[in-house]
């Protein structure tokens, strides 16, 4: 099989092995080496376990289930090819997210929306395409209807400038630490802190009505 070369951005930002992997087996052979089997098992245990998180992140970035599928597949293909460069015991989810983000930038950046500009038609299309894809999964189906109930939150989040939306997604939805986020967005921790502060402040203004309607008090009482 042809050896794939990682895009420059990933080569620069992701630790790579010092030497190429040895003892490669020709893909034409039917027998899989013991080494390859161990790698497959480790990869499925370490990396495939994060597929739902990767898929959701891809959906948020692309707003399109087909593009999200492609992005996740390409991410796993690259991750598998370079799995030897992943340092065992470190955060595999963060490593995968960084590969996915780099893939996204390389693939979709040209068509990226302007920061802060809300394309409500795009959001509507996103829901319609999710609905079209719902036969793939009952969970997606249920999720679709839940999302319709709360699309004010989606719209508020998506209306934020990219740099604020990104850190809020990584922190509040995916649960990454500031250090992991700083590494992913290639900015100092102080910048992550400040983007979260400003992003949440912007969101708060947009979610005031939602908070009142759904019982999230906006005065000094505890939320329900």
């Amino acid at each position: 099989m042809k050896t794939e070369r990682l895009p420059e951005t990933i080569q620069r930002n992701t630790p790579m092995p010092a030497t190429p992997r040895k003892n490669r087996q020709p893909s034409s052979g039917k027998t899989v080496s013991q080494q390859e089997r161990i790698k497959q098992e480790e990869f499925q245990e370490e990396a495939v376990a994060h597929i739902n998180a990767l898929y959701n992140y891809a959906l948020h970035l692309t707003m399109n289930p087909d593009d999200a599928n492609d992005l996740v597949q390409e991410t796993y293909l690259k991750a598998y090819k370079f799995f030897d460069s992943f340092e065992k015991g470190t955060n595999c989810k963060a490593w995968l997210f960084k590969i996915l983000k780099n893939n996204y930038i390389n693939k979709f950046r040209k068509n990226a929306r302007e920061p802060g500009k809300v394309d409500y038609d795009l959001i509507k299309d996103f829901y319609h395409s999710i609905k079209d894809a719902q036969s793939d999964s009952e969970d997606l189906n249920a999720g679709y209807f839940k999302s319709l109930m709360h699309d004010e939150v989606y719209q508020a989040l998506n209306s934020l400038p990219d740099e604020f939306r990104e850190v809020i997604q990584l922190c509040d939805i995916e649960g990454f630490t500031y250090e992991e986020i700083a590494n992913m967005v290639e900015s100092p921790i102080g910048t992550v802190r400040s983007r979260l502060y400003r992003g949440r402040k912007l969101l708060r203004g947009k979610l005031n009505e939602f908070a009142k309607k759904y019982g999230y008090n906006t005065d000094t009482e505890e939320s329900t």
Binding site: M1, Q73, Y76, Y154, I168, Y216
Partner: peptide, 28 residues
């Protein structure tokens, strides 16, 4: 609000299967 109200979708089974197949057919 963000943690509770942003819906988490499950990756389609077809995608999961294709990733599993990918590791079985790709030599790293």
């Amino acid at each position: 609000i963000i943690r509770e109200k942003i819906v988490r979708f499950k990756a389609p089974q077809s995608l999961v299967n294709s990733i599993i197949r990918l590791t079985e057919t790709t030599t790293g």
